[in-house]
Design a protein around this nucleic acid. Structure first.
Lengths: 93, 93
DNA sequence: CCGAATGGTTTATAAAATAAACCAAATATC
DNA sequence: GATATTTGGTTTATTTTATAAACCATTCGG
């Protein structure tokens, strides 16, 4: 049985990647609402995905407020697709 | 996004359940080899699955050697199937 | 016998997830 | 126009989880 990429095999990080697979980009607030996570937890997990090179995180300003915009990178997309393939062998689908 | 049953969302426990979904029963040694886990880790995770009522664990003897036989319970089967359904919404499949 | 192998369990440690506390700036309140 | 509150986060502490290490009883092999 092949290993499940531990960086993706985490509910919150998987949820984030799953969302980013389907949109051009998503900001911190949107991800927080969609995943129903706390800000602290989301912040930590975004860092991990970013450090792994799976997502890009741009910190900018929207008017006068900070705005963090995330998007998936090609490596992130590849890692997710591989993860899904491995997972399928566990799920028998 | 629905929650992924944390008892099943663990590589080793998922691997064990996945195996047990496809066989009548499996013993400790077989599970250890198939999952390439350490005995200690497997022992702990089998306990958790057993305490959750997802598998039944029968400790008996095969000749003079101990033999632990595991099989999935109806609740375990149900939990796995639900887990797969939820996971599919994350994987877009 | 004595050392290694088998089939585990228990306990300690490392890693992960989560929560709590905090911070700066903006906005609303009185 | 001070001050309390909200927004959009980060950092640090705590809890939970996974993993590894140590151990134990029995058996087998020389």
């Amino acid at each position: 049985m092949k290993e499940l990429n531990p960086l993706l095999h985490s509910q919150l990080r998987l949820a984030v990647i799953s969302i980013l697979m389907n949109v051009e980009e998503a900001d911190f607030v949107y991800l927080k609402e969609k995943t129903e996570s706390t800000a602290g937890n989301l912040s930590v997990q975004l860092d991990k995905l970013s450090n792994a090179g799976y997502i890009s995180v741009e910190k900018g300003m929207s008017g006068k407020r900070p705005r963090t915009i995330c998007s998936i990178t090609p490596e992130g997309r590849k890692a997710f697709e591989e993860y899904v393939e491995v997972l399928k062998t566990y799920l028998n689908i």
